[in-house]
């Protein structure tokens, strides 16, 4: 479980995160949603320690990342897996070497066991047979899968995904969501996903935090998001023509039901 308390972050005098507090639950997909510029990337970068907040606490199962010394931060990071927006695979390494990299750096296991673990992770994400390819030789969806395999190689307790669906077609996007969901439930990981993809929100959103202009505007889940009374959230959720249509159909159904009554 990760607890964020009263997080404030400014850049050049402009406050980007205003006193944000939220809870990322264990074994759940915790989604941070919001428009571009709402502060969700800054929030995620603060939580993983890439940006230092001006004030506030970030508690990883009670351990405060903000006040932690460098050595403890390093140890904590070995419990973290991260899926970057652009996958961030190492170009000079093969798929297998990419997945093996965290094991090579931090595990004292034999080469044979490391290879075995890497192949297991690749198999888990459905990429058996692609181990000798380079990142430039595989598709964007496959790159995301490799990045997920690399992220889970060290059995992380926390998994962060920054825009996991960006640049993917809807079908591949759903597969990546399903994979993230399966891994979260299977290994009881605290997963934090930064997204503005509504399919992901409705597909895997166990715990959803909506950010608006740096403020935490709404907290809920995939079952309650469509019925929210929050105006800003509704503007965000029903921005696309598809969701506008769903909303109008839902409203029409409700109206006919009330008439029947």
């Amino acid at each position: 479980m990760i607890e964020v308390k009263n997080l404030i972050k400014s850049f050049e005098g402009q406050e980007v995160l205003h006193d944000v507090s939220c809870l990322f639950e264990e074994g759940q997909n915790n989604l941070i949603i919001g428009q571009s510029g709402s502060g969700k990337t800054v929030l995620m970068k603060c939580v993983i320690g890439l940006i230092r907040p001006d004030s506030g606490e970030i508690l990883y199962d009670g351990r405060d990342l903000v006040t932690m010394n460098g050595k403890d931060v390093k140890l904590l990071r070995r419990e973290i897996g991260m899926l970057f927006q652009g996958s961030a695979l190492f170009d000079s390494m093969t798929v297998e070497e990419n997945v093996m990299f965290p094991l090579t750096m931090f595990s004292d296991d034999t080469l044979r066991n490391r290879v075995k673990r890497a192949l297991f992770c690749l198999d888990r994400v459905g990429l058996k047979g692609a181990e000798s390819k380079y990142p430039s030789e595989i598709s964007g969806g496959m790159q995301k899968r490799v990045a997920i395999a690399r992220a889970i190689a060290l059995n992380p307790k926390y998994l962060f995904c920054d825009e996991p669906n960006s640049g993917l077609d809807p079908q591949t996007s759903i597969k990546i969501d399903e994979l993230i969901n399966d891994i979260t439930k299977e290994y009881n990981i605290t997963t934090v996903v930064n997204t503005h993809d509504m399919n992901s929100v409705l597909g895997i959103g166990d715990n959803i935090i909506f950010l608006n202009k740096g403020h935490k505007e709404w907290v809920g889940d995939k079952d309650t998001i469509l019925n929210s009374e929050n105006k800003e959230l509704n503007n965000f959720v029903f921005a696309s023509p598809l969701f506008k249509r769903i909303k109008s159909e839902l409203d029409a159904d409700e109206a006919s039901l009330s008439l029947e009554k």
Binding site: M82, F84, P102, M105
Partner: peptide, 15 residues
């Protein structure tokens, strides 16, 4: 290139 494609961030996150 490693910096702009977040490969350096990936290294940092891994510790």
């Amino acid at each position: 290139t490693m910096r702009v494609t977040e490969q350096i961030d990936a290294l940092d996150i891994m510790g």
